[in-house]
Simulated assay, not measured.
Amino acid sequence: METDLPEYTIAQLALRNGQDKPQIWVAVDGVIYDVSESRLWRNGQHYEHWAGQDLTSELKDAPHSKSVFIRFKKVGKIR
């Protein structure tokens, strides 16, 4: 449940971009997902999208829905 997840600021999320720290995280609808194990997020980039960001507004242009994130671990929520 999202209420049990730790809270992170946008600045803390930004550090989990695959460059500054080894974790590769993205946020969607206020929930932060760990996409570190995904081959599609190698080096913190997925096509023209960068990790360490809230990608909610960018999903409207994606060829998939936010349901793709169910395969990734929820690690936090945006404070």
Score class of each variant (00 low, 15 high):
Met1His: 10
Met1Gln: 10
Glu2Cys: 09
Glu2Tyr: 11
Thr3Trp: 10
Thr3Val: 13
Asp4Asn: 11
Pro6Glu: 12
Glu7Tyr: 03
Thr9Phe: 10
Thr9Gln: 14
Ile10Glu: 09
Ala11Gly: 04
Leu13Trp: 10
Leu15Asn: 06
Leu15Trp: 02
Asn17Gln: 11
Gln19Pro: 02
Gln19Ile: 01
Gln19Ala: 02
Asp20Ala: 12
Asp20His: 13
Asp20Arg: 14
Lys21Ser: 12
Pro22Asn: 01
Pro22Ala: 00
Gln23Ile: 07
Gln23Pro: 05
Ile24Pro: 02
Trp25His: 05
Ala27Phe: 05
Ala27Ser: 13
Asp29Asn: 15
Asp29Met: 04
Asp29Lys: 14
Val31Cys: 05
Ile32Asn: 01
Ile32Arg: 07
Tyr33Glu: 07
Asp34Ile: 09
Asp34Tyr: 11
Asp34Ser: 09
Asp34Thr: 05
Val35Arg: 04
Val35Tyr: 05
Ser36Cys: 05
Glu37Tyr: 00
Glu37His: 10
Ser38His: 15
Arg39Ser: 13
Trp41Arg: 09
Arg42Ser: 08
Arg42His: 06
Arg42Met: 11
Asn43Trp: 01
Gln45Arg: 06
Tyr47Pro: 02
Tyr47His: 12
Tyr47Arg: 12
Thr56Pro: 04
Glu58Arg: 07
Lys60Gln: 13
Lys60Ser: 06
Lys60Tyr: 00
Pro63Gly: 00
His64Trp: 13
His64Ile: 10
His64Thr: 10
Ser65Phe: 03
Lys66Met: 06
Ser67Asp: 14
Ser67Arg: 13
Ser67Thr: 14
Val68Ile: 15
Val68Met: 07
Phe69Cys: 06
Phe69Glu: 01
Phe69Arg: 01
Phe69Tyr: 12
Phe69Trp: 01
Arg71Ile: 01
Phe72Gln: 10
Phe72Asn: 00
Val75Leu: 04
Lys77Ile: 11
Lys77Leu: 02
Ile78Val: 09
Ile78Leu: 15
Ile78Trp: 02
Arg79Cys: 10
